[in-house]
Design a protein around this nucleic acid. Structure first.
Lengths: 258, 258
DNA sequence: AGAATAGTGTCTATAAGACAGTATAGT
DNA sequence: ACTATACTGTCTTATAGACACTATTCT
């Protein structure tokens, strides 16, 4: 019997179908305060949220309006959840993500009062300068950045508190265990810039000590010096620039070596 | 305006809704060949697949019948994808998973000929002995274990080749970077049992060398010796038993320490 | 005794991390 | 000259990994 015949017999009403399929995005950025010229930046990890508008684009009252929420929305025809995340990010915040990664699914019946609505949670990494042109639009009354400490004190829509907690945990681990850090940095960066970035998620002494870290960066197998390339943007004394080389880094917990 | 009013105005037909929501499970087990008494086991990582039956439980011709596939099925009323994975695993294979973890979503339109069907991919870890009572049922004509090398040569249903590739990559990393290995082992295990397990996914010399690994296991912060507890199941000479202690292990790629 | 696994003693090379010092350049 | 950052010299200690050796216990 052919696959076609089987298809004809298939009745999609046999099983409950979801009432909606959405994608949400936890947009992280590092705000970089350069206190003065010739100093390394002070960095803070921040999450972008939108304040849900009273009315939606179609002029109807919006659900969970007035609360802070992750940007996101319904997956549309012929889109995957990932593609929807890319599109929504641009639509709702005017921002193009550098690095978008799916990290979990929230599908518990009851999580959305409108019905059985499944959401794909993604996190995105966005360089701060692209955020400067962020603007509210459509469903969003307001767009703002919150530090990790602030964000969990807000009045959050749906189950976004859970999603945000998971996103923070995930990006913290990924920053330390993978090379995603490169997406927060310019292509060429100094050791003190990478260091400032990592210090937003760890206090490990071998990272917080300038001397240790300046030495360490030269031995990391996934980072190389850019020959003859220096910058003075972090100090009067010209500093060596580095770049990531793309290798799949897996550091087993059972061994010491890379 | 209240949330209730907003809800009344919400029209679920505004957006395309999926035609189905499923959960698939990549069931991994380690088959342990004890060649003789008093020897450490030789272990192989295997994946359990089912051969799709010609007819489904309702007596209709099954889609993609005759091909090998991951066990899985539709998420039912008031279930989350995770709960469905747990249920399907028992239903289709008679096996209760020790450790089930969601790792990705496959939602590309066109991945399933029956319509826009979204699947949650999970991987599960199952001890070999519970698999002995595995049985085909409902949608499954046959259940079998395949080694990682064999499995990608099979004729696989839907986009299960992609899912399986991702699952193998994920579990390989997780075995080395997290403590999930404990789910493949008895609560108390010897260094040579853990070693045999890790050697299914790595060839690192510090793990493959008996002496190095026997020393290393005593220094790992997430493993402790079980005082006064020894076994002879791997050698005539009684071997110390160890157990995992549950700590959140994050090993940054930028540092050497735990 | 022999065989096989479980471990320990000890050495060498490398790396980690701390402390101190030098180098660079703008003000 | 002063200051802040970017390094480097050097020492101490810890760890990795190799080699050789001992220990245990069943056959």
């Amino acid at each position: 019997m052919s696959n076609q015949e089987a298809l004809n017999q298939y009745d999609s009403n046999l099983f409950r179908t979801p009432d909606g399929y959405t994608s949400d995005i936890a947009v992280f950025t590092i705000t970089s305060h350069q206190l003065a010229e010739f100093t390394p930046p002070k960095m803070t990890l921040k999450l972008m949220l939108i304040k849900r508008a009273l009315m939606n684009a179609e002029g109807q009252t919006n659900i969970e309006s007035g609360k802070w929420a992750l940007p996101g929305g319904f997956v549309q025809d012929d889109e995957s959840g990932y593609e929807a995340a890319e599109r929504e990010l641009v639509e709702e915040t005017g921002v193009k993500g550098l690095h978008i990664k799916h990290f979990s699914v929230y599908d518990k019946p009851g999580r959305d009062p409108r019905g059985w609505i499944i959401t794909n949670a993604h996190y995105a990494i966005v360089p701060e300068h692209t955020l400067s042109k962020r603007n509210a639009s459509d469903d969003a009354a307001e767009v703002a950045l919150f530090s990790i400490d602030e964000v969990l004190k807000l009045d959050l829509a749906f189950d976004h508190r859970d999603i945000i907690k998971d996103a923070i945990h995930k990006i913290t681990n990924d920053l330390l265990q993978t090379t995603v850090a490169q997406n927060f940095l310019p292509k060429h960066f100094t050791y003190s810039e990478l260091q400032a970035l990592l210090l937003t998620v760890t206090k490990d002494s071998s990272i917080s000590s300038d001397q240790s870290f300046a030495r360490k960066i030269k031995t990391l197998p996934f980072i190389q010096a850019v020959a003859g390339s220096k910058t003075q943007r972090t100090s009067k004394s010209p500093a060596q620039l580095y770049e990531f080389i793309d290798v799949d880094v897996v550091k087993p917990i059972y061994t010491a070596r890379y």
